[in-house]
Design a binder for these strands. Sequence first.
DNA 1: TGCATTTGACCTGA
DNA 2: TCAGGTCAAATGCA
Length: 272
Amino acid sequence: MALSTPTSVVLELMTMGQQSAAHLGELLMAASPPMVAERGQALTAEILRCCDRVIAAISGGATSRKRKATMEHGVLMPSKRRSRSGAEVRREVRSGTTADGFVWRKYGQKDINGSTHPRFYYRCAYSANGCGATRRVQQSQEDPAAFVIAYYGDHTCGAGVGDACHRVAPPLPPAAIDPNAGGVADFFDQYQNVESPQPLLAAEQSCWRRQGEAPCSETSRGRWSSSSSTSSSEAELGTSPVMEFLEGGLGLGWECAVNYLCFTDLPQTGVI
DNA sequence: TGCATTTGACCTGA
DNA sequence: TCAGGTCAAATGCA
């Protein structure tokens, strides 16, 4: 074996993962009912996309998004560009909603060159407590229904469930989960297409699970952000509408587990 | 009245 | 000089 470097090991394993995912897709197609096979295919495609991106990122040598460095007296100096709140990007998410279970306060908005949508800047609502978490939200160019959210810094105010900056969100208004209103398929497909459901923060997973335990109530308080967060209150409470839809409309089941809800639990829940 | 949001100005790095 | 990120006064709302 020529797996001498960590990079080559990862590349090899990701390639094996791709092959296994493809094989799994074939098995699902052959042995499952149409509905299950369809979901399985979508899931397989998602896994393959993730593998592709990891491989591309690694083999590409991280050529994109690489911060320029300057040479001074023959010594490589770090960029002098001001860092965002002193924190590196911790993760970038594409999502159908800007709500993520945390309470954010908007502190800025900027029109970005080459983009038809403005960019929004948020910091944790508990930044006064010393929490340095911030995020940057921008509506996707290709898919206006999706938001590209970049997270910076950690929730030092306590990111765990029940902590100050992490609130359990209220359910969606009934209209949003009414199968007869907007069409379940459309609603579901919109979020099916979310690119790479990100590995969720532990706190987010916990929040969602806690939501599942609580009965939905139309009288729950909270503000709702529409498809565009530009005009709504930005002190947001909420989780992905997918979660709400699945719990409120269909209940917790295989479908939600496989398709989105328990993305990080796939090894367990994906097996039928 | 207090708090959150808006938005133009300012700051900084490229 | 430009663009992105942040600040802070003005404004709105409960």
